[in-house]
Design a protein around this nucleic acid. Structure first.
Length: 592
RNA sequence: GCCCCGGUGGCGCAGCUGGAUAGCGCGAUCCCCUCCUAAGGGAUAGGUCAGAGGUUCGAAUCCUCUCCGGGGCGCCA
């Protein structure tokens, strides 16, 4: 069975032919370039498809759009699939299609099944997709959830379009923040051993830190116990005290901790804390349906010498200089607003230095780098692309997608979030409260660069009104029809169904087919623009049309040919529902 | 002060490579189960697309300014 050409393409080539004819006639200048756009009309009274080509050509031709349209229509070759062509409004050309032509999509879907809408690239473009990359200093919170849902869905969509996608979580396991976590855990551990002191303002105060401290005690008993009178000396006062400074305070404490414990014991605390937090994050993401090819450790960059190599490379290219003992990158010469330090005078490299090495690595391994960052990192974009340029690499390989923040509410009340203070709603809590499917759908149905108000109370209390159930219900209903079919001792014969597709003559059936036919381009667009949210809206429409159909038509009718044809149609709907839900990381239950 | 994102019916959001009367969900009002799951369907009401200029045959969409909201602007990651 040959796969029919989509209607849109057919119309597009008809117009193209007509324009060529006009060019031969000398009506169109040969050098005039144009792009033929065909869109499905919003209002069916205006036909099924419309083109604005006359409007776009009107200017270069210096003629009224309707006149141009008339010339194009006159040049069109008649086509049996098209019943009527009209010029309307300012100069649109509207096409009315024989309704049976919409039915072609059904055999196409039943044949291609889950490959419907997919693209195959001859030489697949490699995409290096980095997302979430939250510091492993505590559990993921609902803000990270948005990046997770978006990144994963985007990866799926890109894969469907033939891209070879590598997903990676960059683990910041080398910085000062990790030292603060280790300190926090150790201090809690000391508290468990009845040591008495005031916990630093700048420490991590979440309850999970105490849990980790308890595990630390189980593993090492009291071998890490150092009474504070032995080491808590000459520590800069904490914030709130005279001349206090929470940063200096915590830095002094870290130094004192390292001194008293020694590198080996310090490493024990550090590693246990990192390990616990990171495995918690991994479990959480797994349960959220998000998987990575790799969790890339920042420490690896140093171990493999990439960090130093990156710095040397910039140095060798003459894009660095020393000032005040620090090594600076001349970022301002590459579009950033100011220069950036890459190695501090104490010899420690900055976070940005790691980024140089990391991005150079990504550049090697992929044709396209996508970084998904939170809105608080937007200042990074300039320096990242500037850095690629400085390395002599093409910055257009990098695309940074910024996720705007989700502002959390409980009813009217805003929920403040801070990892440091431990006052945040974790992703795990969200999942347990509203469910994975609802959470993922909610996240990904908004444009990523759009602010989002996330009302927990609403998500929880009205979970039955969440659109995700509406869509899943459409899927479950189709499954139910097939179960019912079996229960009645009947069966579905796809082949005979496709013989009788012309029995599908209602508007509802035509509408459904048209929507199904649009799926491939919805997917392609979602991939091209990195906007998976369009899929969520498409799903909503498809489910709505199905429910309408369901309510006005009986599928399991006595008329055998009609029954088979309708089953073909709803089977096609089921394929597309399944496919799109899966891309968004949402399940498609057979029973609800 | 500078930078990023946004301001679309009561609420939450699509639409933004300019195009035909601005869509969807929730909420509101009314109607629909002798029928494959009513977690459903149908209908009605509700918008000067923040405001003001500009570009254009045509602007929610592009440009400028103003106002309002969110977030960033450290040798923090």
């Amino acid at each position: 069975m040959a796969v029919p050409i989509p209607m849109k393409q057919a119309i597009s080539s008809l117009i193209d032919q007509a324009l060529n004819k006009l060019r031969e006639q000398g009506y169109l200048p040969a050098e005039l370039s144009y792009e033929i756009q065909i869109e499905a009309t919003r209002d069916k009274k205006l036909g099924d498809f419309a083109s604005n080509i006359a409007l776009m050509l009107a200017k270069p031709l210096q003629q009224a759009p309707r006149e141009v349209a008339a010339r194009i229509v006159a040049a069109l070759t008649p086509d049996p699939k098209i019943t009527r062509v009209e010029i309307a409004g300012p100069g649109f050309i509207n096409f009315f299609i024989h309704s049976e032509n919409f039915l072609n999509v059904i055999p196409r879907i039943l044949q291609e099944k889950q490959a419907y809408g997919h693209q195959i690239q001859e030489k697949p473009e490699r995409v290096y997709l980095e997302f979430i990359s939250a510091n492993p200093t505590g559990p993921l919170h609902v803000g990270h959830g948005r990046g997770a849902a978006y990144g994963d869905a985007l990866g799926n969509v890109l894969q469907s379009q033939g891209f070879e996608v590598h997903r990676e979580y960059y683990v910041n396991d080398a910085g000062r923040q990790m030292n603060i976590l280790a300190l926090s855990v150790w201090l809690r551990y000391l508290e468990l051993h009845q040591q008495d002191f005031i916990f630093p303002k700048n420490g991590y105060r979440g309850a999970y830190v105490i849990t980790i401290a308890e595990h630390l005690r189980e593993h090492y008993q009291d071998s890490l116990l150092k009474p504070i009178i032995l080491w808590w000396q000459n520590i800069h006062p904490d914030e709130g005290e005279p001349e206090g400074d929470k940063e200096k305070h915590v830095d002094d404490l870290i130094q004192a901790m390292k001194n008293i414990l020694g590198p080996s014991a310090y490493g024990q605390v550090f590693d246990l804390a990192l390990d616990e937090v990171l495995s918690d994050i991994k479990d959480d993401l797994k349960a959220f349906g998000v998987c990575f090819e790799h969790y890339f450790s920042e420490k690896e960059l140093e171990k493999q010498g990439l960090l130093q190599a990156g710095i040397e490379r910039l140095k060798a290219l003459g894009h660095t200089y020393e000032k005040d003992g620090n090594l600076w990158f001349k970022a301002s010469e590459f579009g950033d607003e100011k220069d950036r330090v890459i190695v501090r005078k104490n010899g420690e490299s900055t976070y940005f230095a790691s980024d140089i090495a990391y991005h150079a690595l990504k550049y090697e391994k992929a044709d396209r780098i996508i970084d998904i960052l939170g809105a608080d990192h937007h200042g990074y974009v300039a320096r990242l692309s500037g850095m690629l340029e400085a390395l002599g690499l093409d910055p257009s390989h990098l695309s940074v997608q910024i996720i705007q923040f989700a502002v959390l509410y409980r009813g009217k009340e805003r929920v403040q979030m801070s990892t440091r203070s431990g006052s945040f709603v974790t992703l795990r809590e969200l999942r347990e409260e509203v469910g994975r499917d609802a959470a993922r759908f909610f996240y990904v149905s908004r444009r990523h660069e759009q602010h989002m108000d996330f009302d927990l109370e609403l998500a929880k209390s009205k979970s039955n009104e969440n659109p995700v159930y509406y869509i899943q219900y459409a899927h479950a209903r189709i499954c139910s029809v097939f179960r019912q079919l079996k229960a009645q001792g009947l069966s579905w014969d796809e082949h005979s169904g496709s013989e009788y597709l012309d029995r599908l003559s209602s508007e509802d059936e035509k509408d459904l087919c048209e929507t199904l036919g649009r799926y491939p381009e919805i997917l392609a667009q979602a991939a091209r623009q990195y906007e998976p949210h369009t899929l969520a809206h498409f799903l909503r429409l498809l489910a709505n049309q199905f429910h309408t159909y369901y309510n006005s038509h009986q599928f399991l009718v006595d008329d055998l040919p009609l029954r088979q044809a309708r089953l073909n149609l709803i089977a096609a709907v089921r394929h597309v529902l399944q496919h799109a839900l899966t891309l968004l990381g949402v399940s498609h239950p057979e029973v609800m």
